[in-house]
């Protein structure tokens, strides 16, 4: 993979960064599923996708943009702490890239899905870890949240990442050959 910031990487990091900000400031970044928080966020998905398609640097920058916007926009004291809201976010896209890269030889779909899942878990674990270190949660509370919130959120991230990246790489057709209404009944 070519190194450094090409025009392509600059633009894609910017555009996906914009989506990360938009998902954060509108209600759109939240999907109502059963977690203690009442919803799973997909605001970190642009960072995952950036890592998958353009590599770790782009993933890191989008994570940074997401982190800063969640810091500026925070309504929870926890996220008004830059060590919790910004620092952990830098790793989402980077880790997603390495997972994708590692699994790619094996199977493209598995690689994308795994990157989505692990990227999301990275977010959960690092944010909560930081929250424990900074004294917002005790370890047991953090562990509870990590399981009850982190896993549904990682499943959501897996589905969304897979759908977006396949539709974009235009490889969706090879999963599904027939539409739902195709067969006579």
């Amino acid at each position: 993979m070519e190194k450094g910031l090409s025009v392509r990487r600059i633009v894609i990091a910017g555009v996906l960064g914009a989506i990360a900000i938009l998902l954060g400031v509108s209600r759109l970044g939240y999907i109502p599923v059963p977690t203690p928080a009442g919803n799973a966020t997909i605001m970190h998905v642009p960072a995952i996708i950036g890592g998958i398609i353009e590599g770790p640097i782009v993933g890191l920058i989008i994570g940074l943009i997401f982190g800063v916007s969640s810091f500026l926009d925070a309504t929870v004291p926890l996220f008004k702490d830059p060590l919790v809201s910004i620092f952990p976010r830098l790793f989402i896209g980077v880790i997603a890239f390495f997972v994708y890269f590692g699994f790619k030889r094996f199977n493209e779909y598995v690689a994308i899905g795994a990157a989505g899942f692990v990227g999301s878990m990275t977010n959960t674990i690092l944010v909560l870890g930081m929250a424990v270190i900074r004294g917002y949660f005790t370890l047991s509370v953090a562990l509870g949240v990590a399981i009850a919130n982190g896993i549904p959120e990682a499943i959501v991230a897996l589905i969304v990442t897979l759908a977006i990246v396949t539709s974009w790489k235009k490889i969706g057709g090879s999963i599904k050959k027939k539409s739902k209404i195709s067969e006579d009944i």
Partner: peptide, 11 residues
């Protein structure tokens, strides 16, 4: 900074 400018411009 170009990345940041693009991001803010497109929101």
């Amino acid at each position: 900074s170009l990345i940041i400018t693009i991001a803010i411009r497109f929101v």
